[in-house]
């Protein structure tokens, strides 16, 4: 009897498969290493932002928000790109590993896009004189936030996990259409938002050399933070799956006994 029980638990527990970010997700030590590295780099980044980067001659010190705001916004785009790819692969292969990656990346992406909106609003108040204005970049970013909050809600309120994974994968794929719209909104429509400093629309020498170097360091720092957060969230989802598996194994056993 004990052997049967052990086999059931082992079966419920053995849901390992090849996953992206697998080594980071599986190894707690690696995640600890990442968070320590990210923390040290974040402190260095803050010192670069405040003591190395020159003060903008027009906007003054508030321009330093840019070293957080831009990498955070770009990481949200990266997160939703990962959701897009992982959702396609999930729909093709039906591998739960890709669904875990999509869910983790979507949740982290929502955190990043929320922060992009908040830091943008804080920047807008002293520069534009208003907290919020319905200009194209802000509006399309708010729509992006709503799309991926809807993604998480579809998953949370679905009748069963498989249905939730399928429906949210469709939302994740369709919703990604808004990412290029957000990026190109400043040239497609009349916008008061500053022009892009990264990507295909960025002008050569848009940034002074030191500013560009500090921005690059911020990008690397936030990329490490992004990888850590996604790996941490994937590990949580895996634990959720394991617990669910053990509980259903116990339920099956109880039903067979009574």
């Amino acid at each position: 009897m004990a052997e049967t029980r052990q086999t059931e638990l082992a079966h419920a527990d053995s849901r390992e498969s090849v996953t992206p970010l697998g080594p980071v997700r599986r190894s707690r030590d690696l995640r600890v290493y990442l968070v320590v590295l990210g923390g040290v780099m974040m402190l260095a980044d803050l010192s670069f932002i405040f003591w190395v980067a020159p003060t903008d001659s027009i906007l003054g010190d508030i321009q330093r928000v840019f070293y957080f705001h831009v990498p955070i916004a770009v990481m949200s785009f990266l997160a939703f790109f990962v959701v897009f790819v992982a959702s396609i692969v999930y729909l093709v292969t039906r591998s739960p590993a890709w669904d875990r990656l999509a869910q983790a990346s979507a949740e982290v992406g929502v955190v990043f896009v929320t922060l992009a909106l908040i830091t943008g609003v804080i920047w807008a108040r002293p520069i534009w004189g208003v907290w919020w204005t319905w200009e194209p970049r802000l509006t399309t970013t708010l729509i992006l936030w709503l799309i991926y909050v809807a993604y998480l809600m579809v998953r949370a309120y679905a009748a069963n996990p498989n249905q939730g994974a399928r429906y949210s994968a469709v939302v994740g794929i369709v919703g990604f259409v808004d990412v290029p719209i957000v990026y190109y909104s400043v040239i497609w429509w009349r916008s008061i938002h500053p022009s892009p400093v990264v990507g295909p629309l960025a002008q050569a020498n848009a940034l002074e050399g030191t500013m560009a170097a500090v921005l690059l360091f911020s990008f690397i720092t936030f990329l490490i933070l992004f990888v850590f957060l996604v790996a941490q969230r994937m590990a949580l989802r895996e634990t959720e799956d394991r617990l669910g598996g053990i509980k259903s194994a116990m339920r099956r056993r109880a039903e067979s006994v009574f």
Binding site: I62, H69, P126
Partner: peptide, 18 residues
């Protein structure tokens, strides 16, 4: 708005919130 250093509270708020 004309004196850049007066915007430090907004700057601190942005970093703190993040």
């Amino acid at each position: 708005n004309a004196v850049p250093s007066c915007n430090l509270s907004y700057l601190a708020a942005a970093f703190m919130v993040s």
